[in-house]
């Protein structure tokens, strides 16, 4: 399966493990619940780890664990739920997360520009979506009024 990462279409090299699946010998992401329940066991494995966050998960309680993850997946169960936009920005700006930040699930093409601005750099759409067709959505706007993760200065400091 293909995803979009850093503006390119690439193969998905992460497996999203459900909470009752056995750990395979490959890079996996786990839910926050599983992480909390099996933290030590997961850390003892030598496979790269990623964390999946729902929009209502609390960042504050896992801030110290972020260093163990090379990817954080923001799960979109409903595209109208905008909480993950704040989570993304906090992960980047407050908690200094530098790894891959991926939106997964029910987000709209038309949200990708916003998501890219709050620090999301990878997109794993729901089943039927075609990554190639989604790619131009990242370029729909060239003007950005606000400072965010992608542009550190608001437009009023950049106007010429």
């Amino acid at each position: 399966m293909e995803i979009i990462k850093d503006g390119h279409i690439v193969a998905n090299d992460w497996r999203h493990l459900s909470d009752d699946e056995a750990l395979p010998e490959q890079a996996v992401t786990v839910s926050l619940l599983r992480w909390k329940n099996e933290r030590d066991r997961l850390l003892a494995c030598s496979v790269p780890l990623g964390l999946r966050l729902n929009s209502d998960d609390s960042l504050e309680e896992i801030a110290d664990d972020l260093k163990y993850f090379s990817i954080i997946v923001l799960e979109f169960r409903q595209f109208t739920d905008g909480r993950s936009f704040s989570l993304a920005r906090l992960l980047r700006e407050r908690y200094g997360f530098n790894g891959e930040l991926r939106a997964r699930g029910d987000f709209l093409r038309d949200q990708m520009f916003f998501l890219s601005r709050v620090g999301v750099n990878a997109f794993e759409p729901n089943g039927s979506a075609n990554a190639q067709e989604l790619l131009p959505a990242l370029q729909e706007f060239t003007v950005k009024y606000q400072a965010a993760v992608d542009v550190k200065e608001p437009l009023y400091r950049r106007r010429k």
Binding site: F79, T80, D81, G82, F85, S86, R89, Q111, F113, F114, L115, R117, V118, F141, K144, Y145, Q146, A148, P154, L155, Y156
Partner: peptide, 14 residues
């Protein structure tokens, strides 16, 4: 107006 226009974080509020 400018700050709120296409605000990347606050376009899908409750």
């Amino acid at each position: 107006r400018q700050w709120s226009t296409l605000h990347p974080e606050f376009s899908f509020l409750p």
